[in-house]
Structures are given as structure tokens and as C-alpha cells.
């Protein structure tokens, strides 16, 4: 499956099928993030239910604390 992640074309491995699995594959599952799936913001408790499909557009922003 191919998706647009933060504007880049990404080929996902077969075991990544939800937003939660996507976050996990980038090792940012535990970080506090805002996720947009095809222009709709997904709430944290819905990450597991949010199924990915070919051609989906995903934006992920995670909070950083330094400065």
C-alpha cells in the first residue's frame, strides 16, 4: 500500500494497516501527536480503528519540548 505521509510518497509494509500501526512503525506511538487522515483529524482513542487505504493522505505532527 502506498500513502502520502507529510507530503511524501511512502510504501507501507503489509503489517501496517491502521494509524496506530503507522505511528508504531515510526516509533512515535508513545509521543503526543496530532494526526490528520485525508484532511480529518483523528482522535487519539480512534488511532486503532482508523484503517489506512491506498492513496490516503496522512499528516503527523508530534510535540517537541526543547528550546
Amino acid at each position: 500500500m502506498n500513502i502520502q505521509l507529510n507530503g511524501r510518497s511512502i510504501d507501507l509494509p503489509d503489517n501496517v494497516t491502521t494509524v496506530l500501526e503507522l505511528l508504531d512503525s515510526y516509533d512515535i506511538k508513545k509521543k503526543i501527536s496530532v494526526v490528520e487522515h485525508n484532511k480529518e483529524i483523528i482522535r487519539r482513542f480512534d488511532y486503532e480503528k482508523a484503517k489506512l487505504a491506498d492513496g490516503d493522505k496522512i499528516e503527523i505532527v508530534h510535540f517537541v519540548g526543547g528550546g
Partner: peptide, 11 residues
Amino acid sequence: RQYSSIDVVKL
């Protein structure tokens, strides 16, 4: 060279 922007007004 990554960039992302999300309208969060609905949150």
C-alpha cells in the same frame, strides 16, 4: 526536509 501543517481549530 520534512514539513507538515494541520489546521487544529476543531480541536
